[in-house]
Design a protein around this nucleic acid. Structure first.
Lengths: 155, 155
DNA sequence: CTAACTGCAAACATTTTGCACAACT
DNA sequence: AGTTGTGCAAAATGTTTGCAGTTAG
């Protein structure tokens, strides 16, 4: 919706055609950002909108999007992959952490500050050159922490 | 093999029986530590050893092990879950990072120093209480970095 | 017009489940 | 004896693929 032309460019410069299905999947991702949608959720949102699309096309499209850096494929251990728009996919890829609440299951995003220290450390100790990272932090969000405190008598 | 009795304790104090199948799965995990084995790999190693066990028992066993903190379930985005022994599962759970080489696919383990800063930061900014984390760092190991340099003319 | 893309259905791979039998306690 | 665990086969789940028809360039 917003930078639709740079989306189209990204597709074409990587040798893929710009099709209505791909535009539709992209617009669902834009409208729901920064949500982490599964292929099926996207498929359902599209059919609810009376757009006829095959689930396999959604999968294929998300595969392409992830390959060319339009989306990130993320996994929250619930048995299915989720896809989120890469912010500013023209510029540098700035992946973020996911804060996964063990209480309510909600997922928040946090910027990946402080990772540089860790990456330098790993480079030094392991001679391992980091290109990308995936950080999942499990715990309790503010709301669920509060709830726990009340239930357990602020233990 | 090594702390077999504390393994048995852990099982029993969590209300599970100590069975030969569970001991066998545990010993495979010990012998192959710190590898990250899939359910099927464990199943194959056991049948090669002429031990008769069902694949579903392996899955059920690994599920229990993970629930009671004997193993960690980890996922390297290749479509199947892997399981690794939690070191010193009597004491504190000290999860480590995984360095996943994009060149050769090898996975190294790195201790999770420096995560405390990050966790404190997240607690401050998001009021999110971290219980556990999963950190995957993608990049190139020393060997593959070297190979890349030679191939591309030390660019 | 040709190559790339789509939709459907069937295939796949991993994991889970129902059930009869076996093993613990 | 009664609960818990096991093995098999079948089901379930998420994802991929083959193919005939459609669309893009």
């Amino acid at each position: 919706m917003k930078n639709n032309s740079s989306f189209k460019n990204k597709l074409e410069e990587s040798g893929h055609s710009f099709t209505s299905q791909r535009a539709e999947v992209y617009s669902i991702l834009c409208e729901n950002a920064p949500a982490h949608l599964t292929a099926e959720e996207i498929f359902i949102k599209l059919t609810q909108r009376h757009l006829k699309i095959g689930l396999s096309t959604v999968y294929r499209t998300l595969g392409i999007f992830t390959n060319i850096g339009i989306t990130d494929k993320v996994d929250f251990d619930d048995g299915m992959s989720r896809y989120e728009l890469v912010e500013n996919f023209d510029g540098k890829n700035h992946r973020h952490h996911h804060l996964i609440c063990l209480g309510c299951g909600r997922v928040e995003d946090a910027l990946d500050d402080l990772m540089e220290d860790l990456e330098n450390d790993v480079l030094e100790k392991f001679s391992f050159n980091i290109i990308d990272h995936s950080v999942k932090l499990y715990g309790y969000c503010a709301e669920c922490s509060m709830k726990n405190k009340i239930e357990t008598g602020s233990k």
